[in-house]
């Protein structure tokens, strides 16, 4: 196996790993843009999305890629409820209160999931698990290609929604200037609900893709991806969606590169080393505007 081939492979694993991060990070960033909050419990929505997918799959035997729509709808509802009853009352009371609230939500969601679905780890097999497609020197499983394509479609859809639709434009206006948006008659509280729900739907999509790619899941699976997604949006710049995508790709590739060159235990640490170096140079992240 040549050096180039190994490099290409690692790059591809990074790209694939980046997809789940990007979906989570984009959702977090959308929420941050509009509401100026970061939900540390975002990974729990990924976890719920994974369980919803697995449960529907077990009950109906539908193609898991179709279930993605269902799990997104479920999470839109959960997201709206969490926004309305948990985050809205504490808006503006301080960043640390948001962390505190997220920790409460983490306890709540993880243990509710453990009650409902037990805490045994599970996994399911995609119907395409045995199909691989040779691309150049690589032999790429079909599932990974679908995952990358689905991620791209979701991101393109989000882009269109934000640019073209009325609601999307109102959301962008709110994230640029909340008071101004209020003055021109935008219902900013409705925008809060929308952004939070869409963010949760993206996490649900990530959850479905997680399950379909054959990764195991349990009630505690959400915390680590959420922290990484959080680090990614800090790296890319809070509120910047291109920043989230590029940050996600950098992380996916850097982690895999570090695992290859330094050993697996440096995988998590290296992403934070990158983060710290970037922030020392640019305190607002790669694409962040200076100041808030």
């Amino acid at each position: 196996m040549g050096e180039l081939e190994i490099f290409l492979q690692i790059l591809f694993w990074g790209l694939y790993a980046g997809c789940i991060y990007i979906l989570l990070a984009t959702g977090l960033n959308l929420i941050f843009g509009v509401m100026k909050i970061v939900n540390f419990a975002h990974g729990e929505f990924l976890m719920v999305g994974a369980y919803v997918t697995a449960t529907v799959f077990a009950l109906t035997g539908l193609n898991p890629y179709v279930i993605i729509l269902f799990s997104m709808v479920v999470l839109v509802a959960i997201g709206a409820a969490v926004e309305r009853f948990c985050f809205r009352p504490i808006l503006g009371t301080g960043k640390l209160n948001e962390i505190f609230l997220s920790l409460g939500l983490i306890y709540l969601f993880q243990n509710l999931a453990a009650l409902i679905w037990t805490d045994k780890w599970q996994s399911i097999q995609s119907p395409y698990a045995s199909i691989s497609i040779p691309i150049g020197p690589l032999n790429v499983p079909l599932d990974y290609i679908i995952i990358i394509v689905v991620t791209a479609i979701i991101l393109a859809g989000l882009h269109l929604f934000l640019k073209r639709s009325r609601t999307g434009r109102a959301m962008r206006a709110t994230s640029q200037n909340r008071k101004g948006a209020m003055l021109v008659g935008i219902d900013v509280e409705r925008m809060d609900v929308f952004s939070f729900s869409i963010g949760c739907a993206l996490a649900a999509a990530a959850g479905t893709l997680w399950v379909v790619s054959g990764q195991v899941f349990n009630p505690y699976m959400g915390s680590i991806p959420a922290v990484k997604a959080f680090a990614i949006i800090i790296l890319g710049g809070l509120g910047s969606i291109p920043g989230a995508i590029i940050g996600g790709l950098i992380y996916g590739v850097a982690e895999n590169g570090a695992a290859f060159l330094l050993g697996g235990m440096w995988k998590d640490a290296v992403s934070f080393i990158i983060l710290i170096v970037v922030l020392v140079v640019r305190p607002t992240g790669l694409f962040g505007e200076s100041g808030e």
């Binding site: 970061v38 960043k95 962390i99 922290v227 959080f230 680090a231 800090i234 809070l238 050993g263 235990m265 440096w266 998590d268 640490a269 992403s271 934070f272 080393i273 983060l275 710290i276 922030l279 020392v280 305190p283 607002t284 992240g285």
Partner: peptide, 24 residues
């Protein structure tokens, strides 16, 4: 130079880096 979330994430990262150094 860092504020709020940026500071939070950097301190978070340091805990992970310190752990990695301790075990390597």
């Amino acid at each position: 130079r860092l504020k709020e979330w940026f500071l939070a994430m950097v301190t978070f990262g340091f805990a992970i880096i310190v752990q990695a150094i301790t075990v390597s």
